[in-house]
């Protein structure tokens, strides 16, 4: 069975290390916050100017002045800090944020990412995505392995306008976990019940299978 969105988030959460400062994008990446392993303390960065983002407020306690980058009402945790947008992207650009997790429409075998624009459709803008991918030390992409037409999103080259080049380090899709290496995508884990043959069939970019590839385990 391919992973559902919650399981993709759960698997990405295992990449978190104690002391990490983490920026989670909109969509599946946001769910990662629900699966932070016990004993691992991370600080969530929201690029509109907050370190130490907490959960959604209780009903009736929403504050219009406290939102995240997805414009959702949120809370701040003890020890959080507030800053302006220039400083927020300053800390991103300076590589202070340890991990960035974001979604993608396409990733190429050399780590290029496309996730902001589809020609012929209304362009909403790149927001902070280009800044994040250009500077993040470690970028994990959370996405479905194929698009709704069943076509691979792991490609030799991106066909959509790029968000950034040679930046993605790892992909967690519904089919498995893939490192981006000089030899293309390397499958290091596969989803329970998913075969290597299926992964090969649905990966258009160059793919190798790690010698010690293993099945993902979920509790």
């Amino acid at each position: 069975m391919p992973l559902n969105k919650e399981q993709i988030a759960q698997r990405i959460a295992r990449e978190l290390q104690d002391g990490f400062y983490v920026n989670l994008g909109i969509g599946i990446p946001t769910l990662v916050a629900n699966y932070i392993p016990e004993g691992v303390n991370v600080v969530l960065q929201s690029e509109n100017g907050l370190l130490g983002m907490g959960p959604f407020p209780f009903e009736g306690e929403e504050d219009a002045d406290m939102i995240n980058a997805g414009k959702q009402t949120i809370t701040k945790l003890p020890g959080s800090s507030i800053f302006d947008s220039a400083m927020s992207f300053g800390m991103i650009r300076a590589g202070k944020v340890n991990l960035t997790v974001l979604g993608a429409m396409e990733v190429s075998e050399n780590g290029d990412i496309a996730n902001w624009k589809i020609p012929g459709k209304m362009v909403k803008g790149m927001g902070g995505a280009m800044d994040l991918v250009a500077s993040a030390r470690n970028i994990i992409v959370a996405m479905q392995h194929t698009n709704p037409k069943g076509e691979s999103k792991l490609l030799p080259n991106c066909t959509l306008p790029l968000t950034g080049v040679k930046c993605v380090k790892k992909i967690v899709s519904d089919l498995g976990v893939f490192d981006v290496t000089p030899d293309g995508f390397r499958c290091i884990e596969y989803a329970p019940g998913v075969t290597i043959e299926e992964i090969k069939a649905k990966t258009a970019g160059r793919l190798t299978i790690a010698d010690d590839v293993k099945e993902m385990i979920f509790n």
Partner: peptide, 25 residues
């Protein structure tokens, strides 16, 4: 890009004519 937008504002306020950023390369 959002960080570029913020920093282009900042540059104006700091009296600097331009910035260099990797965003969008």
């Amino acid at each position: 890009p959002q960080g570029t937008l913020a920093t282009r504002c900042m540059a104006a306020g700091y009296g600097m004519p331009a910035i260099f950023t990797p965003a969008g390369v």
